[in-house]
Every structure is written in structure tokens, then in C-alpha cells.
Amino acid sequence: MKLQSLAAAVALVVSAVLITGCDQAEKSAQQLMGKAAESAKQAIDDTHKAAEQALSDATGSKEKADDDSEKKPSSAQEI
């Protein structure tokens, strides 16, 4: 009987250790997912800023080119 009681106690202790280990693994996984989510958000924000800058540059360049093309005909007319 003592052997069965000892085996049951050992099984309970092992189960408790495994559950504790699983909880710690879950917490670590949650922290890792949180960091990954923050990194993804930062990458999206950086990409958005770069896209806005590229659009601004393209629009600014186009407007500047339009301004230059508008000036050329009027310069030709003055001559």
C-alpha cells in the first residue's frame, strides 16, 4: 500500500510540475506574441510613412513638372 501511495504522490507532484511548466510556457508565448505584434505594428507604421513620403514626393515632382511645363509655353509666347 505504501508503494501505491508513494506512486500516487509522485504522480501528483509530476503533474503539478508539468502544469506549472505549461503555465510558464504559455506566459512566455504570450510575451513573445506581444513583442511580435508590436514589431508588426511598427513595420506597418514605417511602411505607411514611407508610402506617404513617396506619394508626397511623386505628387510634388508631378506638380513641379506641371509648373515647369506651364511656364515653357508662356515663355515661348513671350519670345
Results as ranks from 00 to 15, higher is better:
residue 1 M to F: 05
residue 5 S to H: 09
residue 7 A to M: 13
residue 8 A to H: 02
residue 8 A to Q: 12
residue 10 V to A: 14
residue 11 A to M: 03
residue 12 L to N: 09
residue 12 L to P: 00
residue 13 V to P: 00
residue 13 V to E: 15
residue 13 V to W: 05
residue 14 V to A: 12
residue 14 V to Q: 06
residue 14 V to F: 01
residue 15 S to N: 09
residue 16 A to Q: 11
residue 16 A to S: 13
residue 17 V to W: 04
residue 20 T to E: 09
residue 21 G to Q: 06
residue 21 G to E: 05
residue 22 C to R: 11
residue 24 Q to S: 14
residue 24 Q to C: 13
residue 25 A to D: 09
residue 26 E to N: 10
residue 27 K to L: 09
residue 27 K to T: 07
residue 28 S to C: 10
residue 31 Q to C: 04
residue 31 Q to N: 13
residue 34 G to P: 00
residue 36 A to I: 09
residue 36 A to P: 00
residue 37 A to Y: 04
residue 40 A to E: 02
residue 40 A to M: 02
residue 41 K to Y: 04
residue 41 K to A: 15
residue 42 Q to E: 12
residue 45 D to G: 00
residue 45 D to H: 02
residue 46 D to Y: 03
residue 46 D to T: 11
residue 46 D to S: 11
residue 47 T to L: 15
residue 48 H to S: 10
residue 48 H to D: 09
residue 49 K to T: 14
residue 49 K to L: 14
residue 51 A to C: 10
residue 51 A to I: 14
residue 51 A to L: 15
residue 55 L to K: 14
residue 55 L to S: 15
residue 57 D to H: 05
residue 58 A to E: 13
residue 59 T to K: 11
residue 60 G to S: 08
residue 61 S to E: 08
residue 62 K to R: 13
residue 62 K to G: 01
residue 64 K to P: 00
residue 64 K to G: 01
residue 65 A to V: 03
residue 66 D to F: 02
residue 66 D to M: 05
residue 66 D to K: 02
residue 66 D to A: 08
residue 68 D to R: 01
residue 68 D to P: 00
residue 68 D to H: 08
residue 72 K to E: 07
residue 73 P to C: 03
residue 75 S to H: 07
residue 76 A to F: 07
residue 77 Q to E: 14
residue 78 E to L: 15
